[in-house]
């Protein structure tokens, strides 16, 4: 394993080293980053099967736009962790701040603690599994992908969502506009079982409720104006 120390090198060097290693391929695929001290934009824009462990807590946009790589944060992550992820896996051992997995198009984001507000905002295909709770406006305008919450969801879950699938084990403080509870069918149990297993999440599919779009906002209608 190669070590990059942010107390010794600057952010540009760190990211350039990881980005080059990711695209170049080669045998050295395991990296660790020490002394992150809440720094922003760590391990962003990776495109290759690299495995990066960040030992400590990060600032904004850790693992932003990730492709293929596995990034583990052995601490908590600041706003926008794994934003616009395309593929690969990002695991946050602690909590994640707002906008976790925002606009993500693929891959798997696992948050072992809580995620705060706007988790999965505008998600476009990413799978997100949160072991704890998520804050308000999570999955706002979510288009595709799956959000799984083992704990509770805050206010306005799934507001204005399109086709993303939401599963919550605990309570939901309130549903956003156009978000409704839906029936759990066998295909949803299967989907959930797979995702929980891949995330290593201690929960069973039967414990969850499913939420999705009522599809009333899909075409403008004045009778729905209060929801706009």
């Amino acid at each position: 394993m190669q070590t990059l120390d942010l107390a010794q090198s600057d952010l540009r060097t760190l990211n350039a080293t990881l980005q080059t290693a990711a695209t170049a391929g080669g045998n050295e695929t395991a990296w660790e980053v020490v002394n992150p001290r809440g720094a922003h934009a760590l391990a962003v824009g990776l495109d290759g099967p690299l495995s990066v462990t960040v030992r400590g807590s990060t600032g904004y946009y850790c693992a932003g736009m990730n492709k293929q790589a596995t990034v583990q944060v052995a601490g908590s992550a600041g706003p926008g962790v794994a934003e616009n992820m395309m593929s690969g896996t990002v695991v946050v051992e602690g909590d994640a701040s707002q906008y976790a997995g925002a606009t993500g198009r693929g891959g798997l984001l696992v948050v072992k603690g809580n995620a705060s507000s706007r988790c999965g905002i505008s998600m476009k295909g990413i799978d997100i599994v949160v072991f704890g709770n998520v804050g308000h406006m999570s999955a706002f305008m979510a288009q595709a992908g799956t959000l799984v919450v083992l704990g509770d969801a805050g206010e306005a879950l799934g507001d204005s969502l399109y086709e993303a699938r939401l599963f919550v084990r605990g309570s939901v403080r309130s549903l956003g506009a156009d978000c409704v509870e839906k029936e759990m069918r066998p295909e949803h149990h299967a989907l959930l079982a797979d995702l929980l297993e891949r995330a290593g999440a201690p929960a069973a599919p039967e414990e969850f409720r499913r939420y999705g779009s009522a599809r009333r906002l899909y075409n403008f209608d004045i009778d729905n104006a209060s929801a706009y």
Binding site: G38, A39, S57, G59, S76, G78, D95, S117, G135, H136
Partner: peptide, 22 residues
């Protein structure tokens, strides 16, 4: 405003860290 501001506080590793609710 950011976690960065807290990293040098004594015992921060064991502190309860959270985001204030809206």
């Amino acid at each position: 405003s950011e976690y960065r501001a807290l990293v040098d506080l004594p015992g921060i590793e064991a502190a309860r860290v959270w985001e204030p609710e809206p």
